[in-house]
Design a protein around this nucleic acid. Sequence first.
DNA 1: GAGATCGATAACCCGCTGGCTATTGATATA
DNA 2: TATATCAATAGCCAGCGGGTTATCGATCTC
Lengths: 107, 107
Amino acid sequence: MPNAHDELFRALADPTRRAIFERLCREGEQTVGALTALAGVSQPAVSKHLGVLKHAGLVRDRHEGRQTHYSAQLGALAPLIDWTSQMAGFWQSRFDNLEDLLKRMDQ
Amino acid sequence: MPNAHDELFRALADPTRRAIFERLCREGEQTVGALTALAGVSQPAVSKHLGVLKHAGLVRDRHEGRQTHYSAQLGALAPLIDWTSQMAGFWQSRFDNLEDLLKRMDQ
DNA sequence: GAGATCGATAACCCGCTGGCTATTGATATA
DNA sequence: TATATCAATAGCCAGCGGGTTATCGATCTC
């Protein structure tokens, strides 16, 4: 079963999309136009990427007149942090077990 | 320019591949056969996934007779951790700037 | 040496995804 | 009201990526 991390990892896997997200983290709220100006791809492409990011909870949008402002939602990175430390935890506990084993063998 | 995180994020984006990596983290070194038995895909598919993980530095292989043992390389997750905390850092510094601004406006 | 097993490679297929252009809806401006 | 701008959507296309089966090289086992 594909777990909940899927959408998050997939959303961040594309370089263009990740660049957009990074920029929103660095510089804060941006309009679609501003993002498009530096994205190196067309405006519809940027909109599509923003759609994916939004669906993954990585960005919020705010409508103001005819323009839309996007901003990063840092909280969405939490599952990624959790996953990473979980992997590290598994690693560590296996290491501990090995240590125990060696200790037991030693005496 | 696609940065160095690309390969890492892409490698972890696929559920099957991530499951293999998670298993290696949980249970330690495994043969291709053992991994295939529970992966839900064919042995060549598993080999291909292991190739991708290896290329991304996430696993090591060790040959022993006719079987190959793979193990997780936890250190490869470091760039991911760095990237995450960098994003958090940008966020924080923008927040600090805002705080400064408000403080300056206040007086 | 013959046969079986392990895992990597080759060759192929299909679906998804990221890109594009064109268009639409909505809002601002003349 | 007519026109221009912004961003989302529609519709399309090409390439890639993850899956398969078939095969090969290498190593055990008989």
